[in-house]
Amino acid sequence: MRKYLKLNTPIPGKLYFTLSITAFAFVLLLWELGVTVGQLPPSHLPPPGAVARAAWDLAADGLLGDIGISFFRVTSGFLLAAAIGVPLGILMGTLKVVEAFFEPLLAFFRYMPASAFIPLTIIWLSIFETQKIGVVFIGIFFQMVLMVMDVTKNVPQDLIDTAYTLGARPLEVFRRVILPAALPGIMDTLRITLGWAWTYVIVAELVAANSGLGFLIMNAGRQLNTPDMFVGILTIGILGIICDMAFKAFNRLLFPWMEREV
Rank of each mutant, 00 (worst) to 15 (best):
T36C: 08
F26K: 02
V155M: 09
P42N: 08
K96F: 09
W196C: 03
Y164F: 15
I123Q: 11
M229D: 00
S20T: 13
E261K: 12
F24R: 11
V98A: 15
T226C: 03
V86Q: 08
A54C: 10
V155F: 10
G167A: 08
L79P: 01
A54K: 08
L213G: 00
I238N: 02
V27L: 15
L95D: 07
E172T: 13
N225F: 11
Q131I: 08
L33D: 02
L40C: 04
G212E: 02
P256T: 05
L105G: 03
L206S: 01
I123R: 12
T193K: 07
I192F: 12
N219R: 13
A114T: 10
A181P: 11
R73I: 12
G89L: 08
V35D: 00
R73N: 05
G214M: 07
K96M: 07
D61G: 08
I160M: 10
N219D: 14
M218E: 06
V207N: 04
S76R: 05
S211N: 14
V98N: 09
I21F: 15
K132R: 11
A100P: 01
I140Q: 00
A25D: 06
L216F: 14
W257S: 14
L146P: 00
A209Q: 06
W196N: 03
Y111A: 09
I241L: 14
M218H: 10
P156Q: 05
V173W: 02
P104G: 07
F255D: 05
A83G: 02
L234T: 10
P10E: 05
F137M: 02
L29E: 07
E172L: 10
P12Q: 02
V51P: 01
I84Y: 05
V136D: 01
A59E: 06
T36I: 10
A23Y: 12
V35Q: 04
I69Y: 09
I67F: 04
N225D: 15
L179N: 01
L106I: 15
T36W: 05
K3Y: 13
R260I: 14
V51L: 12
W257F: 15
P184K: 00
R169Y: 14
K6S: 12
A60E: 10
K96R: 14
I186S: 02
K14G: 12
T75P: 03
Y200Q: 06
D57M: 13
T36S: 15
L80K: 03
D66T: 10
F230V: 03
L146Q: 01
G214Y: 00
T165I: 14
F109K: 12
L179M: 15
F102P: 03
I123D: 03
I21W: 15
P87Q: 06
L206A: 07
I241E: 09
K153I: 00
G93Y: 07
L58W: 01
A83H: 10
S115W: 12
N225M: 09
V35N: 03
V201L: 12
M112H: 05
I123F: 15
N251H: 06
